[in-house]
Simulated assay, not measured.
Amino acid sequence: MTKFLLSVHVLAAILAVGPIAVAASVFPRIVRESAAADPAHRGGTAAFLHRVCRAYAVVGLAVPAFGLATGAQLGVLTDAWLLASIALTAGAAALLALAILPGQQRLLARTAGDAPAAADDGLRPAATRLGMLTGVFNLLWAVVVVLMIVRPGSTTGA
């Protein structure tokens, strides 16, 4: 059962977090380009990337669910490396839900008008900030992956 839970956990992480990492990373550049485009061609790709992030965020709930089930099965729920991974995962989830997704929504709303966005309307700094937040989100997940592989102090043999 442990191998099944671990397999589902890893697959869920790859298939859910991967698309979020890519779509969220590309979003700021695409929304800036979209803002300068003809209103008839505005927002389609950026809106699609936002939908990808939202949908996969829901699917991504399987990652910690199966991760906790795997940790319980292995008896490592109190190990420091796992507790650190849980805290980092919670931080990444909070960042996604409270900053990245709302930030994408705000930028989409700013670019929804009929006129091209002016260079000084604050779109660029907002998109840059969103890109930075996405970088932090991706970095948190990278650290979680390293912790899952290295498992410092683990007695399960890394």
Rank of each mutant, 00 (worst) to 15 (best):
W81Y: 14
A126K: 06
G131L: 11
G60I: 09
R124G: 02
I20A: 09
M148W: 11
A142E: 02
A72K: 13
L101W: 04
L123Y: 14
F48M: 11
I30A: 05
I20P: 02
S7N: 13
R129E: 06
A90N: 03
L130G: 06
S154N: 05
L11I: 01
P64M: 12
F48K: 03
A72E: 07
A126D: 09
L83V: 13
V59S: 01
W141D: 02
A142I: 15
V144L: 07
T2A: 12
G71R: 08
A99P: 02
C53W: 00
I149V: 15
I14W: 05
A118Q: 12
A92R: 01
A65R: 10
L98V: 14
A40N: 10
P102F: 01
K3D: 14
G113T: 02
A12T: 11
R110K: 15
G67T: 08
A127S: 09
G113I: 02
H9P: 07
R29V: 11
L77I: 12
L96N: 10
D79Q: 14
S34T: 04
T89A: 15
V58K: 00
T111M: 11
G157F: 07
D114H: 05
H50Q: 15
R151V: 06
F27L: 09
L77P: 05
A84T: 13
D114G: 15
L77G: 09
L133D: 02
C53T: 15
L96R: 04
A55S: 13
V8A: 09
G44I: 04
A13Q: 07
A62H: 04
V76L: 02
A12W: 01
L133Y: 08
L101K: 10
G103K: 04
F4W: 10
A158H: 14
T70G: 09
A97I: 09
A142N: 03
V17R: 00
R124P: 00
A109V: 10
A16H: 09
Q104V: 12
L83M: 14
P64F: 14
L6H: 03
Q73D: 14
D121V: 06
D38P: 07
A119I: 12
T128E: 13
R32K: 14
V144M: 04
A55N: 09
I30E: 10
A57M: 06
G75P: 08
C53E: 11
L107G: 06
H9R: 01
V150E: 03
